[in-house]
């Protein structure tokens, strides 16, 4: 068991990344870690950049915010936001799982800002960190039946990569605790699709 694991979930308001970070924390607790999870919500729901911090620990509970350069894992729901977080919180040992589907800021849609070249974003991420896993979580979520469960596809993908020492069974336990029966199925399905996709990628 590691002393401390720092995970950042980044994305855009409305992508369900807060729920994903809560799931990481709950799965961590199910696996026997202590956990602190911090997020901002309220105004940031309205299309702004959103990040939450999850800190798993063995003994001493740390504060809610991860210091710069200290992210062990970045779970990126949006490519540009992932790079933004990497610049501030990453280090050469960081592991990144990133959803490749862009969400354009309204300034980009209005033609006033330019969204960086996608290939360059992904290349830069790969260049600067230890491991990078990419997937189109939104597309995989459609396979599960609804684009809103892309967040659980991402959580499944993290589990599949093995970048954090939390097993599938712990995630399933956390999900069972958290979701009502009505929506548990689709979330579990999304989780498995994400996990399988990554496992297949790694095997290939």
């Amino acid at each position: 068991m590691e002393e401390r694991i720092n995970i950042i979930v980044s994305g855009v308001g409305g992508q369900g990344n807060v729920l994903a970070s809560q799931m990481m924390a709950l799965a961590g607790v199910a696996a026997g870690y202590g956990a602190v999870e911090a997020e901002t919500f309220g105004a940031s729901q309205r299309g702004g950049s959103v990040m939450s911090h999850v800190r798993l620990y063995k003994n001493n509970s740390p504060g809610p915010l991860i210091p710069e350069g200290k992210a062990d894992v970045i779970l990126g729901f949006e490519p540009m936001e992932t790079l933004r977080i990497l610049a501030r919180y990453g280090n050469p040992n960081t592991k990144v799982v990133v959803n490749t589907r862009p969400v354009y800021p309204i300034g980009v849609l209005a033609g006033e800002q330019v969204y960086p070249d996608m290939t360059k974003i992904l290349e830069s991420i790969k260049q600067h960190v230890a491991q990078t896993y990419t997937l189109n979580a939104t597309e995989i979520a459609l396979e599960a039946g609804n684009p809103v469960v892309a967040n659980m596809v991402m959580v499944g993908a993290v589990c599949g990569t093995g970048v954090i020492p939390i097993k599938e069974e712990h995630f399933l336990l956390a999900m069972k605790d958290y979701f009502t029966d009505k929506i548990l199925d689709i979330n579990e399905k999304a989780f498995r699709l994400g996990m399988d996709y990554i496992t297949d990628t790694i095997t290939v």
């Binding site: 105004a43 299309g47 702004g48 790079l83 610049a87 990453g90 960086p116």
Partner: peptide, 14 residues
């Protein structure tokens, strides 16, 4: 890591 994309990223207006 921002070097290859021009050094900065567009901010997101709410």
């Amino acid at each position: 890591c921002l070097g290859s994309v021009g050094g900065s990223l567009p901010e997101r207006d709410r």
